[in-house]
Design a binder for these strands. Structure first.
Length: 112
DNA sequence: TGGGTGACCATAG
DNA sequence: ACTATGGCCACCC
């Protein structure tokens, strides 16, 4: 029985709640889940996201600077940027333009 | 037991 | 903009 698998599922659930055209970062998700495990674990969870039955919009998760640090883990290195641009997000040199305007914080958006 | 690594983060200079 | 440092925690030698 692995505890981290529950954590993975929780991460995926949060990522699925990210609205189209919005993005968040690894640390925000870790914080929302109680920060029991660090943001590294969120990134690690994304590493396994592609093998999930239910799809996870992993392209909507970037690092704290709005950089597409996870692009190399997609099928092609451009896919992450293409998916985001398709949702109306502008990316310059692997960095999201107006990141602050697109940022979606689960702590603020999901709290009652 | 210990070192290196990683889709990270924060702070300091 | 950059580097350095410490923390984080699971994984793999």
């Amino acid at each position: 029985m692995k505890q981290h698998e529950d954590f993975f599922q929780m991460v995926y659930e949060v990522v699925r709640l990210i609205p189209k055209g919005r993005v968040t970062n690894y640390g925000a998700i870790a914080k929302y889940l109680g920060a029991a495990r660090s943001s590294r674990m969120v990134g690690w969870a994304m590493n396994a996201a592609h093998s999930q039955k239910k799809k996870v919009p992993a392209h909507r998760v970037v690092n704290r600077n709005g950089e597409l640090t996870g692009k190399h883990h997609f099928e092609t290195p451009f896919q992450m940027q293409e998916l985001l641009e398709k949702e109306g997000i502008v990316i310059i040199k692997d960095k999201i333009k107006n990141f602050n305007n697109h940022f979606w914080d689960p702590m603020k958006e999901l709290e009652l």
